[in-house]
Design a protein around this nucleic acid. Structure first.
Length: 487
RNA sequence: GGUCCCAUCGUCUAGUGGCUAGGACGCCAGGUUUUCAUCCUGGAAACGGGAGUUCAAUUCUCCCUGGGAUCACCA
C-alpha cells in the first residue's frame, strides 16, 4: 500500500468552476481516494481586486452536485453559509494573512528577500524597453542596490513597497511525475514579488507556505504552472521546506489547440451541467482526458477510475475536448438510468410534473433517444399533447388507407379487450401485440406503422409498444379512435 | 523575442526495438427494425521531417520543423 496522499485543489474564487479545475480535482480525488489520503480544497483569494461575491459558495455547490466530496476545507452548510473543517485551517487564504508574515520576515532576515519601492509606472516602462530590445522582461534589481540606511528610512516613512524574493545564482531542478526532470537556469528567473503593497501575499508565497503547513504531498496543477515551479522550489529551499511531488497535467484545449478559453466555448462546469450532461458522464469524460486506464474501453465507474488511476500514466500533451464524444458518453449513461433516476435527472429540465407516472414512463422511454437532458423538454411533447395525424401519414408506404383503418380497428379491439396488467411492463405490451399479429397472420408493417402514427401523431417516434405502455389503455384508445376517424 | 513544455487516424487514446500500429467518437457503406434512435457488420483515416545507434526503428539519441505555455503588486 502506498502512503496516503494529501492532495489539494486551490481555485481562485471566480464565480464558476473551470473545466480544467474539474479535471485536476478529479486527479486529486482519484489519487487521494486510492491511497486512503485526503482531498483538500483551499480557496486562493489573495487578489482583492478580483473578489467575486458568493464565488466560493457556488464553487462548493458545484463540487457537491458532481458528488466529488472533499475531506478538508470550506464546506457549505444547509443554510447556505460557510464553515471549515480540518486540522490545518483556515483554508481560505485571506484568513491566513498573519500566517504568511513571519515567513516573509524570515526571508528578509536571511537576505533572501528585499523591499522594492519601484512604482508600477517604472516597472511597466522597464519591461517595455526590455521587450523592445528583445530581452526577457525581468526586474532590474534597482532596489537591491539601495543602501541599508535609505531602505530603513523609506520603510520608516511608510513608503509603499513590495517584498521581492532574491533569486540566487545557479540552476534549479525538479522532478515531475508526468514530465520527468525539468531544469532552468536561475538567471532566467525574475525576482518574484512575494508580498504585495496591500500586505497580501502573492500566489507564489502563499502556495509554498500553505502547501507546507497543510502537509500537501502531491501538487497537481495545469502545465501552465511549470514556468513558476522553479521559483516555488527555490522558496521551499530558502525556508527549509520539503519539496512535494509535482505533477503538471496537460492542458485542456480549444479546437484550435490553444489553451481552453471562455471566448471559444464552454469552460464552466456549470455550463455543461446546464446543458444536460450527467455528472457521472462528465466525470468519466473529463477524468479520462489525458489519462486512459486501459485504452480499449471508454466507460468507467468512478470506483474503477479511483482504482486504476496512475499519475505516471498521465499524458504529456494537451487534449482537445471532443464534444461529440461527450454527447455519446452522456447517452451511454442515460441508457443505464432507471425510472426514478431519469425523473430526478430530468426534473430541472422540463416544465411537466416528473412525479406523474405517465411522464416518468415517457422520460424513461425517451432517455435512450436523446443525448442531453435539455432534449427532454422537446421529447416529452408527443406524450403530453396530441394532434391527430392525417390519413396519408397514417398509411404505411406499402399499404393503403383502407387497410390502415381495418388494422387499426383490429388492434383497437385487441387493446380494448386486453387486461390491465399488460401495462405493468413494457415487454408485456409488446408481447401481447406481437402475439396478436402472429395469431391473425398479419404483417408487422401493416399493423405497427398505422398504430404508431395513431399513437404518436408523428412520422418519427418511439415504438408503438412504448407509446401504449406510456399512455395506458384509455389515452391509447382515445388516440386510436381519433386516427380511425381521420381515415 | 527569452525560457520551458509537447508531438500516433479529424478528435480522444493504446502500444512495441521486429505487430496487418489496436480501441473509441465522428464519418461512409451494408444489415436488423413499423419510422427515428438503438443495435450489429464492414470501410476510409495516424506514427511531422532528417541524421545517428542497431541486423531491425513509430519506439532510443541528436537536430530541424510544427504546436503550446509562460515571462504582473492575477491566480
Amino acid at each position: 500500500m502506498t502512503t496516503p496522499a494529501r492532495t489539494r485543489i486551490a481555485p481562485s474564487p471566480t464565480g464558476y468552476m473551470h473545466i480544467g479545475t474539474l479535471r485536476t480535482s478529479l486527479f486529486d480525488y482519484f489519487l487521494s481516494k486510492q491511497t486512503g489520503g485526503k482531498f483538500i480544497i483551499r480557496i486562493e483569494d489573495t487578489d482583492q481586486e478580483r473578489l467575486v461575491e458568493g464565488a466560493t459558495e457556488s464553487l462548493l455547490a458545484t463540487f457537491s452536485k458532481l458528488g466529488i466530496l472533499h475531506d478538508e476545507g470550506p464546506f457549505l452548510q444547509d443554510d447556505g453559509s460557510l464553515t471549515q473543517k480540518g486540522d490545518v485551517g483556515p483554508y481560505i487564504q485571506s484568513e491566513r494573512l498573519d500566517i504568511y508574515r513571519p515567513y516573509v520576515e524570515t526571508l528578509l532576515g536571511q537576505g533572501d528577500a528585499y523591499p522594492c519601492f519601484c512604482s508600477r509606472e517604472r516597472l511597466t516602462e522597464m519591461r517595455e524597453e526590455q521587450r523592445a530590445t528583445k530581452q526577457t522582461p525581468k526586474y532590474d534589481r534597482a532596489c537591491l542596490a539601495l543602501g541599508q540606511d535609505e531602505v530603513t528610512k523609506r520603510l520608516a516613512d511608510g513608503e509603499a513597497h513590495v517584498i521581492r524574493m532574491k533569486v540566487p545564482e545557479g540552476q534549479t531542478v525538479f522532478e515531475d511525475v508526468v514530465r520527468g526532470t525539468v531544469s532552468v537556469n536561475n538567471s532566467d528567473l525574475d525576482d518574484q514579488v512575494l508580498m504585495k503593497s496591500d500586505g497580501f501575499p502573492t500566489y507564489h508565497m502563499a502556495v509554498v507556505v500553505d502547501d507546507n503547513l497543510m502537509a500537501i504531498s502531491h501538487v497537481l496543477r495545469g502545465e501552465e504552472w511549470i514556468p513558476s515551479t522553479p521559483k516555488h522550489v527555490i522558496l521551499m529551499n530558502m525556508l527549509g521546506f520539503d519539496v512535494p511531488t509535482f505533477a503538471h497535467v496537460p492542458l485542456l484545449l480549444n479546437a484550435d489547440k490553444t489553451k481552453l478559453s471562455k471566448r471559444q466555448g464552454d469552460v464552466a462546469v456549470e455550463d455543461y451541467l446546464e446543458k444536460g450532461y450527467l455528472p457521472a458522464a462528465l466525470i468519466n469524460f473529463v477524468g479520462t482526458l489525458g489519462f486512459n486506464p486501459t485504452g480499449d474501453r471508454e466507460v468507467y465507474t468512478l470506483q474503477e477510475l479511483i482504482d486504476m488511476f496512475d499519475l505516471s500514466k498521465v499524458k504529456k500533451s494537451g487534449a482537445v475536448m471532443n464534444i461529440e464524444k461527450l454527447d455519446w458518453m452522456n447517452q451511454q449513461y442515460l441508457k443505464e438510468l432507471g425510472l426514478d433516476e431519469v425523473a430526478e435527472a430530468a426534473r430541472p429540465f422540463v416544465e411537466v410534473d416528473v412525479d406523474d407516472p405517465m411522464i416518468m414512463r415517457a422520460l424513461f422511454v425517451e432517455r435512450e433517444r436523446i443525448h442531453r437532458l435539455t432534449e427532454f423538454a422537446e421529447a416529452i411533447v408527443p406524450y403530453t399533447g396530441y394532434d391527430a395525424p392525417d390519413a396519408e401519414t397514417i398509411t404505411w408506404k406499402k399499404s393503403d388507407a383502407a387497410d390502415a383503418k381495418v388494422q387499426l380497428e383490429g388492434v383497437r379491439a385487441e387493446i380494448a379487450g386486453a387486461p390491465d396488467d399488460i401495462y405493468e411492463n413494457l415487454s408485456y405490451v409488446e408481447d401481447r401485440i406481437k402475439a396478436y399479429i402472429e395469431k391473425n397472420e398479419l404483417s408487422n408493417g401493416n399493423v405497427l406503422w398505422p398504430l404508431r402514427i395513431a399513437l404518436s401523431g408523428l412520422q418519427k417516434s418511439a415504438s408503438p409498444f412504448e407509446f401504449l405502455w406510456v399512455l395506458g389503455r384509455e389515452e391509447s384508445l382515445k388516440r386510436i379512435d381519433q386516427a380511425i376517424a381521420v381515415l
